[in-house]
Design a protein around this nucleic acid. Sequence first.
DNA 1: ATTGTTTGTACGAAGAATGTCCCATACCGT
DNA 2: ACGGTATGGGACATTCTTCGTACAAACAAT
Lengths: 316, 316
Amino acid sequence: MALSHDSPVYPVRIVLRRTGLTAELLRAWERRYEVVAPGRTQGGQRLYSESDVDRLLLLKRATLYGHSIGRVAQLSNDEIAGLLETVPHQSEPTGTEPQSDYSASIRRRCLEAVGWMDGGALDGLLRQAAVRLGPVQFAEQVVVPFVREIGEMWHDGKIRIVQEHLATATIRQVMSNLLAFTVAPASAPIFVAATTSGQHHEIGALLAAAIAAGEGWRAVYLGADLPGEEIAAAAERLRARAVGVSIVFPADSVAIEPDLRALSQALGTRIPVFVGGEGARHHRALLDQLQLRTIETLTDLRTELGRVSGGRPETA
Amino acid sequence: MALSHDSPVYPVRIVLRRTGLTAELLRAWERRYEVVAPGRTQGGQRLYSESDVDRLLLLKRATLYGHSIGRVAQLSNDEIAGLLETVPHQSEPTGTEPQSDYSASIRRRCLEAVGWMDGGALDGLLRQAAVRLGPVQFAEQVVVPFVREIGEMWHDGKIRIVQEHLATATIRQVMSNLLAFTVAPASAPIFVAATTSGQHHEIGALLAAAIAAGEGWRAVYLGADLPGEEIAAAAERLRARAVGVSIVFPADSVAIEPDLRALSQALGTRIPVFVGGEGARHHRALLDQLQLRTIETLTDLRTELGRVSGGRPETA
DNA sequence: ATTGTTTGTACGAAGAATGTCCCATACCGT
DNA sequence: ACGGTATGGGACATTCTTCGTACAAACAAT
């Protein structure tokens, strides 16, 4: 009950996980710019609050956008949010509270829009949420649960196929648009996302791309339904530092195996290949054998990506 | 709230990205003509305001139109805007000449981007062309020929599958984005676009939607791979005044017939159903029998739509 | 054609800003 | 008590920025 947004509860390692910052960087930020003022345990170790995490996420987004940390560190949360807001109108309380509350309300309104088959409204809602939350939180808190809800409703016959398709097309639209406008420095490592042969469900791959973009990568979405060799060739050509593949439809191994094998063979251990999606679980054994890395959740992907780009083999 | 239009917040790199100027050029402009007077951080680095960016964009546009920087730099924003008002008219109404030129050069650069697998560049080029030409001309002069070129190159083995997919995904992205930002009055008639079962090629439907949007309709793109009943249901629900369906893959009639029949039966003659795409030709007889209207070219669609919505034939 | 002017680009040195590395010390749960 | 984990700071390495100067191509006016 007493847990407010300001009560210091998270130890450093949780914060690192959630923000994707490294320990050194976080400490440097605190030391040099007093970015946040975490509490302490008796022994002197830091304890961060929920709002600390919010602020750190905000700051990270700002730096990714190109603002210098030294400057944004002096600004209030609202001011930073204002900097990131592409459309400088509409207010509402930013930053702290929204998270679960805000994303839940967005999802509710999205479902209404789907019911009305109002693609425009849906588009607008998603876009707003995307800008507001940034790629990572948008993906994790809005898209994933929303897709699940849509899937369930479709399964239960509560909505029509068109509605499901409309929702899917719109999400895809907003996601790829979000990607297009997420800029990365030229030196950023490249992440290639795609879908293997016969896999027409693109959202998983787009989610992966969005996460990567949020982590500071340059994400390239190749498209759906691609043979393994093609994905590998593109990764080579683009000098990708990591590859993400989404398998949603749990087809029989015979259909998927050649693609995965080609990926494994062509990229081997030089470039890590992450495989995620519902379908990935069903092929765990094959994936392990081929030295491809199975991804359970988007958070997993995030930490794995951080590890790759950081180049440091952290054991966690 | 505390951030006004004039408060210095953007470091150079953001300004460079937003304006497309190079660092050297921007500094040269400031030094020589004092085009803007950015603030400074404590360390002496520049900080630009939103209005600085506005002015720089204006100046850049002016130079692109041939004005010399030294002269426009002395003008106020309004004066520059006035200059630009007059110029564009000479390039817009001229119809065919310079635009085929422009679109050809855009397509050439797009093909280069595809060669490089540079999705970002491709996206940027298409977006620019879309804004510059408007939905209709963009569709007719850029997308259609570009898609054809890509298809041929793919067929000839000159490009890889990934490249074709990347191009397709990017085009789709830009098109649907274009749609999302084309606003129409609430009273505008509604056009529903989709693709029938098994048809995964979405660009045709998106083109149709773009054309409709350009003609003043409110275009709703439902998605790909939809059963006829679903498209019909959506059309009913949205009170569409016309429906567009794209068939690219010339599948055997047995696969397509049920969908088309459902469309014909549900919508009948009340709502016109246009069928276009490569595949449509192969089913001409069936289409005629079902009273669905075959569309040969996008121009056809445009005139047909004009007939439906107002009966006033547009001469362009 | 020959000038002088305008304008975009290039180079290099000095300084800022920022991310990373390292280490001695201290904490924590088992 | 011990291994893993944190802390605080100093020290680097790198990338950005700045600023002056310089150069070359395009242009205008002679």
